[in-house]
Amino acid sequence: MQSPIPVLSMRKLYLGASDRQQFIADLGRAARDVGFFYLEDHGISLAEQVKVLDTAKSFFALSDAEKKQVQMIHSPHFRGYSANYSELTAGRPDRREQFDIMDELPALSASAIHHEWQKLIGPNQWPRQLPAIKSQLLSWQDKLTEVSLQLLAALCESLEQPADALAETISNGPYRHTKLIKYPGSPEASGQGVGAHKDPGYLTLVLQDENSGLEVEYEQQWYKVAPRPGAFVVNIGELLELASNGYLKATNHRVSSPKTGVTRYSSAFFMAAQLNASVPVLKLPSHLAKHAKGPTSDPGNPLLHNVGENVMKGRKRSHPDVSARFYASEEKCSSC
């Protein structure tokens, strides 16, 4: 089956007015019809992408004991290492190792915390065996943030809104989350690397190695998202579906485990509104609004307008071990 996923060149955004408008139109169409696209000419070199994947390989090559020193179970902020089958998607364990970082910030004092989601704010955990990883990944996160913010502004324009229509939701800096990921080979023909899901933020940028595994659902069929050297795979998140009242599309996707003897490495970057934001529903012109049927809703995983509450809900569902260690008493209290 021919892939429905379009290829966009970000270079057009900076050429003449005609090229720029063509890019914005193509971007809007991709976000509306598929919710996924390849992004080329984004300004981040192939060499730098390769270095990030090399860092992923170096991290996951550490001994189990070394990785457990930065295990997520030590972090109330949901940062650090998680082993195979530690994270749940749609209630089932994923077969992948991961290393998660977010913004590098001090944790808030107890007296400054008025909402549970404020406990997401805090420092990352860094393996001392890889002293360069901190500066490398924080710089990588900054660069992907810049690409994502430019895409967000262009998407607002594709909705015939001002480019800064959602600027208030990121005025203090967007919520950012980066993963290094290792998918080991599986003897199962369609083993769950990651179960089918939609991403909760504004935008996701995925860097893949040469091994396939990512799949997207389109018109009730699953299509492979083949690796494309130098390109990021970009997908629309639920917050953009919400902000556009369902005009833009957050699409189900999954990762199937590679076959036995093959290991797949990737890195995913997630950009959302700042944690204290409530995402507005933009007032679209009538010719677009008539196609906006409201965001899709999963009764088992409702989308919340408040970003911090939505992020915390997702982290606790995905990492029940961390939730049980740091948040179990609060859940008991809330049900008293």
Rank of each mutant, 00 (worst) to 15 (best):
D298V: 00
K290V: 13
Y223R: 06
Y202I: 09
G261F: 06
S278T: 13
E210R: 10
L282D: 01
K293P: 00
G185N: 02
K198F: 05
Y265G: 06
P200C: 05
K179Y: 14
G300W: 03
R228W: 14
Y223N: 10
G300Y: 04
K259D: 13
N276K: 07
P295R: 08
N276R: 01
D209Q: 02
V216P: 02
I181T: 13
A189F: 10
A189K: 06
L180F: 13
V255I: 08
N211I: 11
Y223I: 10
S278W: 00
K224C: 15
L248G: 13
Q208V: 07
H253M: 07
P280C: 08
E219T: 14
S256Q: 12
Y223T: 10
F269H: 11
L180I: 08
V255Q: 04
D209M: 03
R254W: 06
N235E: 09
V307Q: 00
P229M: 13
A268C: 09
E241A: 10
Y247R: 03
A292D: 01
P227R: 01
K259H: 15
V216I: 15
S244N: 08
T260D: 13
L288H: 12
Q274V: 05
L207F: 02
G191D: 04
P285N: 11
H253R: 06
A272R: 03
A273N: 06
L248D: 13
K249G: 11
L248Q: 11
S278M: 09
G185Y: 08
G185P: 07
G193M: 01
N301M: 02
S212I: 11
E217N: 12
Q192Y: 05
V307I: 10
G246M: 10
L180S: 06
E238A: 03
V255D: 05
K259L: 12
L214T: 03
L284W: 00
L282H: 00
K198T: 15
P302A: 04
H287V: 09
L242H: 14
P295C: 04
K182V: 07
N301L: 00
P200A: 09
P285R: 09
G308L: 07
V206H: 06
G193N: 06
N245E: 14
N306C: 07
P200S: 11
N252W: 14
R228H: 15
E210C: 07
K224N: 15
F232P: 03
Q220N: 15
L239F: 13
K249V: 08
P229N: 12
S267Y: 07
L284I: 14
A231E: 07
L275N: 04
G191H: 11
T296N: 09
V194L: 04
L275A: 02
A292F: 07
Y218H: 14
K290H: 12
S212D: 15
G261L: 05
N252S: 14
F270I: 02
